[in-house]
Design a protein around this nucleic acid. Structure first.
Lengths: 220, 220
DNA sequence: CGGGTTCTCCCCCGCGCGGCGGAGGCGGAT
DNA sequence: ATCCGCCTCCGCCGCGCGGGGGAGAACCCG
């Protein structure tokens, strides 16, 4: 815990921001700012060279944005540093992207100095962290991932047609669907035809796509 | 900030836990435990009556679990309190459920006393919060939505075959794929056949299903 | 009672699809 | 210089699929 200091690299295109971060972090014991970068591309090469423990990565940067830079760092380096994505606005959609890219944390620039320091220490210990307000964004996205996206046609499906669509989305042929539902092949075809009509699909493949895209069935 | 104290209700079926929480929180200035509940149903009625600012809600409780109780509280009360879901194990799938139910935070019972206090203060201010380890769960779920679950066959696809699979998953016929890629129909068929072979699919529909299930393409 | 909906089943037809084998060119690796 | 992987294309064949009809039985609801 109190061994070697945490080595930090700052990536931000604005000098003032870098300076502010450096001042805050350098004042802390056990934290050492070892490098800076002003573009995403530079961030990747600086990190590759200096091998810091933590990277504070701005989102909006020239050449390569912080999200892509994060992806590249995590994809190309072995034993990569922990990346904390930093941005200005909390309503940024970047929260999701940052986590998706493998970021260990997400901070707003308006965060207090103590929050920043705590963030660096936390991720250096292997923990993850999100700026509280960002959690709301994430939670909201999570919650929103369920409703809304159910097109009208889903409700118009009869029970039987819904069964058939599920089996179609399981990759079954008409004959197999008939067998699974214990009905004649002709009946299965009729239901499939009805599903195609209601989904507006040209063939069973498009129907399955519609089933996925509408959330009627979900991967995993 | 330092006006009226934060009024807290504790909902947990274990007396020891309630006592522990009460001792910790009552020792803090500006925080007042105004009520307790031992079941989910009781939690709902107690909250309805006492109108606290914050509810510490256990997950596992008799009658109604904490998740459903949270849902009911947030759905039926106007100007509802902020609910922090508390549980014992961090590998609980409840993190997701809790956020989905509208919880403002997620804490583990092993959290330090200071974390607990900070959590109450934070959510009382309107911020959200997650126990750091819980963030990992959430972030991992988010991140896991892409990598890992990429079966071996994804990597074995050639660039061209990946293009073709994407178009297949867009619902195009062989002829349309050929047109889109500016190649002959025979070539498109060859690539499709290769995709079917590598995905282990019997027909294009199963290939598209594999594409979704593997995360090769994502809904939305 | 009649009308609507749903589920069931049948016919024929055309065609896209998938399986089969073969072939030539082109670039990188050995 | 040789092999191998990838992309490109060609034929043939069988079959499942989708489109077009029609039809009977059960059910609910007004």
């Amino acid at each position: 815990m109190s061994g070697a200091p945490v080595r930090v690299v700052l990536a931000d295109d604005e000098r003032m921001v870098r300076t502010a971060l450096r001042v805050i972090l350098d004042a802390e014991e056990g934290i050492e700012v070892v490098g800076e970068a002003t573009t995403g591309a530079e961030a990747v090469s600086v990190v590759r060279e200096l091998r810091p423990d933590v990277v504070l990565m701005d989102v909006r940067m020239p050449e390569i944005d912080g999200i892509r830079a994060t992806e590249q760092i995590l994809a190309t380096l072995e034993d990569p540093p922990r990346v904390v994505v930093v941005t200005t606005f909390e309503n940024d959609a970047y929260v999701y992207d940052a986590l998706h890219a493998g970021a260990a944390g997400f901070l707003l620039k308006r965060a207090a100095a103590e929050e920043l320091v705590q963030a660096v220490r936390l991720v250096a210990c292997g923990d993850s962290l999100l700026y509280p307000a960002a959690v709301r964004t994430l939670a909201a996205e999570h919650a929103a991932r369920q409703p809304a996206r159910a097109p009208a046609w889903v409700a118009r499906l009869t029970d039987r047609e819904a069964d058939v669509l599920r089996l179609m989305a399981a990759g079954l042929t008409n004959a197999e669907i008939a067998g699974r539902l214990s009905v004649g092949p002709a009946t299965a075809k009729t239901h499939v035809a009805a599903v195609l009509a209601k989904t507006g699909a040209r063939d069973r493949t498009q129907a399955v796509i519609a089933a996925y895209e509408s959330g009627f069935i979900t991967p995993g």
